[in-house]
């Protein structure tokens, strides 16, 4: 498995990268950490004419707190965010979910924004960004726009990004005094999740986000449910996700995981909230 031929450009600024995208459109693709996209190239599921490497653009390699949000630049590797000393205090859900993303050996290279750009339905970072109502900062040569994470991911590995745009950063809102829970089931730790669940509990109620089942992360908000009312809500959610059967799991098994793992992460989040 070797990639098909492409030209390669190492951009030294975001503007340079955007100029290439403006000129080449869909023929050009951004290469960041490469932990998803290089595999796509090797399998020839992607065959761009030109790769624009953004990993040596210093201005994109920043984690900043701006107006109540943590803004993570396009060149920030997953290991860097995981090692950020304020992660647990500012983004407890990301601190819980990120160790499930790939392995030590892929987090060292892979970026946060790259995982969101790839938009795999079972990946943890898109799930976390959607659960936290975060947003994606898109930029083209002509303009910048912010898109809500839930609107950015339009389907399985499909996004609202236009050909001439790149993700410049993603932002996770900092929300104090909430409880968080995260768990997933995979065949091997670090593999793609069969089902991944993130729960956020506040005084207003419960939010549950589920990945790995539908074609994108799905979220439900419930006012303070408990007992059998919560079981009923989880059961409805499990069926609404329209689970598919594949080589990893049956649809029925996925629904059961949504009910059980969903319940477990909600209980975890309640405990962490109180």
């Amino acid at each position: 498995m070797k990639p098909a031929a492409f030209d390669y450009v190492r951009a030294s600024s975001a503007e340079e990268a955007l100029e290439v995208l403006a000129k080449e459109g869909a023929d050009a693709r951004i290469l960041a950490g490469g932990q998803s996209f290089m595999a796509m190239l090797n399998m020839r599921l992607a065959r761009p004419k030109l790769l624009v490497d953004i990993m040596r653009i210093g201005s994109l390699d920043r984690i900043e707190e701006i107006e109540g949000e943590i803004v993570v630049g396009a060149a920030v590797r997953q290991a860097k965010l995981l090692g950020w000393d304020k992660l647990k205090a500012k983004l407890p859900l990301v601190a819980l979910a990120l160790p499930w993303t790939g392995h030590v050996q892929t987090r060292s290279r892979g970026t946060i924004c790259g995982s969101i750009a790839h938009a795999d339905p079972s990946a943890e970072m898109p799930l976390s960004l959607v659960a936290l109502s975060g947003s994606v900062h898109l930029r083209s040569l002509k303009k910048r726009r912010r898109v809500r994470a839930a609107d950015y991911i339009t389907g399985m590995m499909n996004t609202a990004r236009a050909d001439e745009e790149m993700i410049e950063a993603v932002s996770f809102p900092v929300v104090a005094e909430h409880g968080y829970g995260f768990r997933e089931i995979a065949r091997r730790h670090g593999d793609f999740a069969i089902v991944a669940c993130a729960a956020i509990v506040s005084s207003k109620g419960i939010r549950l986000a589920v990945g790995g089942v539908a074609d994108r992360p799905e979220v439900r908000d419930w006012p303070g449910l408990s007992g059998s009312a919560l079981d009923d809500a989880l059961n409805r959610f499990a069926y609404e996700l329209d689970a598919r059967q594949d080589v990893h799991a049956t649809a029925r098994y996925r629904r059961e995981l949504v009910r059980r793992v969903g319940r477990a992460v909600i209980e975890e989040a309640v405990q962490c909230h109180s």
Binding site: Y8, Q35, L51, D53, A79, T106, S108, R109
Partner: peptide
Amino acid sequence: GMLTRACLTLAVQ
């Protein structure tokens, strides 16, 4: 210093 999958890295990088 970063652990790297050589198969997901281009020589020119």
